[in-house]
């Protein structure tokens, strides 16, 4: 893996808090192009809040976030949307729309305010839909989609937006086994392509271990740990992270983490 001199994304001394809960204190995080990060922690540890802060959707209590060496606060909204994209945890369906209309909203930051989507934009949307296995769904109403299909439409919209850094909040939520792996392989390959990177909130430690190369752990009360996944992942750390016993077994793709019964703690 090549590591660029100027990191894709650099966070220093970041403080994030929400509702009196400290999410992270003096967080240092550097995402280089080509890296795929997993963000893990218990419910309420602030994974979503942190992701929104990294995406510039809410302001931090302190610290600095640099995108290609440029402070986030100095980047315009549209420019920001072309470089950093977010897959939100919950996407309201809102008003009626077709699947392709919904996917085309990803082109919004790329088009000038007066411009209409053209054939090239539609082609991008169709390709993105095919990539998440929604080929042939273009004319369907979004209200008729299943939970998993709606999730994949959200991913397709993010692919249409095509940001350098993709921040994903539980991208495999609602997805079946096949689509979990298909989507994560797609996101990993995308992150590995030149100039790109990804950070995703996941709850399945085995999926994180298999598809991500780095991990950021949120232990609660502001304590965090970040680094290559081989270094930060072990049974003891995961046991502490989830306050639940976790054992490691040897698996075909590296260690497999098996949770124990709750009362063992």
């Amino acid at each position: 893996m090549t590591v660029n001199a100027a990191p894709l994304f650099a966070v220093s001394g970041l403080n994030v808090a929400i509702g009196g809960v400290t999410v992270c204190r003096d967080l240092e995080l550097v995402i280089h192009a080509g890296q795929c990060w997993a963000v893990l922690g218990m419910n309420g540890s602030g994974k979503t809040t942190l992701l929104h802060t990294l995406a510039g959707l809410r302001s931090a209590a302190g610290g600095e976030i640099l995108l290609d060496g440029q402070p986030l606060t100095q980047i315009g909204r549209r420019e920001m949307a072309r470089r950093v994209g977010v897959l939100l945890q919950d996407l309201p369906q809102g008003f009626p729309a077709t699947v392709i209309e919904s996917a085309l909203t990803g082109r919004h930051p790329h088009l000038s305010p007066w411009q209409w989507e053209g054939a090239a934009d539609r082609e991008l949307a169709r390709a993105a839909l095919a990539a998440v296995d929604l080929g042939g769904f273009e004319r369907r109403q979004v209200g008729t989609l299943s939970g998993g299909e709606w999730r994949r439409l959200g991913l397709a919209t993010l692919l249409v937006q095509n940001p350098a850094l993709a921040l994903l909040d539980e991208p495999v939520n609602h997805l079946d086994l096949h689509h979990q792996h298909r989507v994560l392989a797609l996101l990993r390959n995308r992150a590995a392509s030149p100039g790109h990177g990804a950070a995703m909130v996941l709850h399945d430690v085995n999926l994180a271990r298999r598809y991500c190369d780095h991990a950021l752990l949120l232990f609660g009360k502001g304590e965090t740990r970040a680094g290559p996944i081989d270094e930060v992942f072990d049974a003891r750390t995961l046991t502490r992270l989830y306050r639940h016993p976790v054992n490691a077994l040897d698996g075909p793709h590296g260690p497999l983490y098996i949770p124990g019964d709750p009362e063992e703690i």
Partner: peptide, 13 residues
């Protein structure tokens, strides 16, 4: 129409 947070992430003021 699809949500303020999403609109914000797509560069809408």
């Amino acid at each position: 129409a699809r949500g303020e947070l999403l609109a914000g992430s797509l560069g809408v003021d």
